[in-house]
Simulated assay, not measured.
Amino acid sequence: MTTHRQHLVYGHVTNHDCLAFIDARIAAGEAAEIRALATARTWGEARQVQMTHLSHPAGPDCYEPEDGYGDDEPFDITEVGAVVEGYWPPMVTTRALDVLPQDLRNRYGKLVLTVHTGKYLEVPLACETELVAELRGRGYEVTRDDELINLLDGFSLGSLAS
């Protein structure tokens, strides 16, 4: 019988100054979509980005060409409403609620409720060594990648287009 080994990616998320954890496969798919949208040069290119992991904040359901967002108009991800308002991409710190075992969430994290974007798990940086050791002891593969975690949280999206 083969056991499934879950691979988690984690890192220091700048916007919340804590650790965030996410399933590695989900992280890779979401990161590709964020990069593709952030590097679109025109609204037409942005609308063509295929989203399977995330909602599409610049898709045809949100912005119509006849409303001034024509296919040839310059696109800047930092001007998209959902990005400006902090709803897209979703906070990466929420993912720990799905991937960390309940007992570890209780021991190392603190549930934080936000007014606009719901709840997330705040895991202090000081808990990193002990929490990662416990996860590995339970058979998790755990990799630290601060750059990926911050991309998934939407930190410095505008710099991707440069």
Results as ranks from 00 to 15, higher is better:
49 V>A: 04
49 V>H: 03
50 Q>W: 03
50 Q>K: 13
50 Q>H: 10
50 Q>F: 04
51 M>S: 07
51 M>C: 11
52 T>M: 14
52 T>A: 15
52 T>S: 15
52 T>V: 15
52 T>L: 15
52 T>N: 15
53 H>C: 13
53 H>A: 13
53 H>E: 14
53 H>W: 15
53 H>V: 11
54 L>S: 13
55 S>C: 11
55 S>T: 14
55 S>D: 09
55 S>R: 12
56 H>M: 06
56 H>C: 06
56 H>R: 07
56 H>E: 05
56 H>V: 06
56 H>P: 03
57 P>G: 01
57 P>A: 02
57 P>K: 03
57 P>M: 01
57 P>I: 01
58 A>N: 03
58 A>I: 03
59 G>S: 00
59 G>V: 01
61 D>R: 07
61 D>Q: 05
61 D>I: 01
62 C>G: 00
63 Y>T: 00
63 Y>C: 00
64 E>A: 02
64 E>S: 04
65 P>E: 04
66 E>M: 03
67 D>Y: 00
67 D>G: 00
68 G>F: 01
68 G>Q: 03
69 Y>V: 00
70 G>V: 00
70 G>P: 00
71 D>N: 12
71 D>Q: 05
72 D>I: 03
72 D>H: 13
72 D>Y: 05
73 E>Y: 02
73 E>H: 05
73 E>G: 00
74 P>D: 06
74 P>M: 10
75 F>A: 05
76 D>M: 08
76 D>S: 09
77 I>W: 07
77 I>A: 06
77 I>H: 08
78 T>E: 02
78 T>Q: 04
78 T>D: 03
78 T>V: 09
79 E>N: 07
79 E>G: 01
79 E>F: 03
79 E>Q: 13
80 V>A: 02
80 V>W: 01
81 G>H: 07
81 G>Q: 08
81 G>D: 08
82 A>G: 04
82 A>H: 10
82 A>W: 10
82 A>I: 04
82 A>L: 13
82 A>K: 12
83 V>G: 01
83 V>H: 01
83 V>I: 14
83 V>T: 03
83 V>N: 02
83 V>A: 02
84 V>A: 06
84 V>K: 10
84 V>S: 02
85 E>P: 00
85 E>V: 03
85 E>R: 07
85 E>L: 13
85 E>Q: 12
86 G>A: 09
86 G>V: 08
86 G>R: 11
87 Y>N: 09
87 Y>C: 06
88 W>N: 02
89 P>M: 07
89 P>A: 05
90 P>M: 08
90 P>D: 13
90 P>L: 09
90 P>A: 10
90 P>I: 07
91 M>D: 15
91 M>C: 10
91 M>V: 11
91 M>Q: 14
92 V>K: 13
92 V>F: 12
92 V>M: 13
92 V>R: 13
92 V>W: 14
93 T>D: 15
93 T>Y: 12
94 T>V: 13
94 T>F: 08
94 T>D: 11
94 T>A: 15
94 T>I: 10
94 T>K: 14
95 R>T: 09
95 R>V: 08
96 A>V: 10
96 A>Q: 11
97 L>A: 14
97 L>C: 11
97 L>M: 15
99 V>A: 12
99 V>R: 10
99 V>T: 15
100 L>T: 06
100 L>W: 04
100 L>H: 06
100 L>D: 11
100 L>M: 09
101 P>D: 14
102 Q>V: 10
102 Q>A: 10
102 Q>L: 10
102 Q>P: 04
